[in-house]
């Protein structure tokens, strides 16, 4: 399975969970996550995420 992963810390974005603490509702597609959103674990930018095999 592939998923969007933070290259600075390894945190994985799970569309089903979203990131409610930062206002990203469960079910939000990666494309719809705003560009100024940050990794909830390490604070890296959305642009620091890559599609990785997990």
């Amino acid at each position: 399975m592939k998923a969007w992963m933070c290259m600075n810390c390894g945190w994985v974005y799970d569309q089903a969970t979203g990131d409610p603490m930062s206002g990203i509702a469960p079910g939000t597609a990666w494309e719809d996550v705003p560009d100024d959103w940050k990794c909830p674990d390490c604070g890296a930018e959305k642009a620091d995420f890559d599609m990785e095999e997990i």
Binding site: M5, M7, N8, G10, D48, E52, E53, I54
Partner: peptide
Amino acid sequence: HTRFRKIFQKAFLPQ
């Protein structure tokens, strides 16, 4: 830090 950290983290990613 940002520059070096990414190189090291890559060797310790979950997969």
